[in-house]
Amino acid sequence: MDSLLAILIDGLVYSSWLFIIAVGLTLIYGVMKILNIAHGSLYSLGAYTAASLTGLWLSLGYAPMGSFLVMLLSAVLVGAVFGPIIERGLLRFMYGRDEIVLVLVTYALFLILEDVIKIVWGVNPYFLYQPYSLLGSFEILNLTYPNYNLLLCIVAIIIGLVLTWLLQKTKQGKILIAVIHDREMASAQGVHVGKVYFLTFTLGATLAALGGVLTAPMISVQPGIGAETIVLAFAVVVIGGLGSLPGAALAAIMVGLVRASAVHLVPDLDLFSVYLVMATVLIFRPKGLFVTQEQRKI
């Protein structure tokens, strides 16, 4: 019973984390048809920036609770700086090329950003453990969990709700959906597709950074965390169906629960389990849970 509860709680916490790191990726793909490998680097940049800025905040003796605000600002900062630079400076010259070429472009970007991080922060790990314990912990059936885990769940739910609201209820969101549906049609009706891409990428980049920011207190921030995370994010968005928000949410929950079960029951299958879910889903749903395959018109 205890272990079942533990699996459930760990699973949901892990699901929330997965959703946070994957949601920006699926959003960018949905609108721009770019599977952004550099998402991993933006995640790392978020983690490093948060580690540095929040560390500075705390070392200057300001109110510890303020660290959460600093963390949020770190995510916005990374998104607002790197999103526009990458979209305006590189990606916009590549629009219209094959999806696989775009993957390669973002892979090149990933390689470049990985070294930018090394140049700025070096190769030694950074730690930002304070926020993790700041919020205290809760107890349930003899199991103790830090409240920070709860924060992850809440943030994931907020992101999901806000994005859904943005897409479905606002004018900007409706324009975004029009672009997703038919880029040329939207363009013909006076939608500024370039602007939509710019905003989407910046928002996606901010979400990637936010993923890193929220992860920073739970890990040692060091080279390689981006590479590790991006493949998990890939798995989630591919399972859900590329570009599908509800798909990403459902996939995150599936993967989260499966991995938590693996960790508790068969620890050796930990990482293996994630990709096993992916392979299994794709066998039955070749384009993921929320996307159906279309036949080419001839």
Binding site: L35, I100, F234, P267, L269, L271, M278, A279, L282, K287
Partner: peptide, 22 residues
């Protein structure tokens, strides 16, 4: 396309996961 790329990536990561725990 990207589905081939990603699925092959997934399979390689399965092996990675298995070997690194063995």
């Amino acid at each position: 396309d990207i589905f081939f790329a990603m699925l092959s990536l997934a399979f390689s990561m399965i092996l990675y996961g298995l070997l690194s725990k063995n």
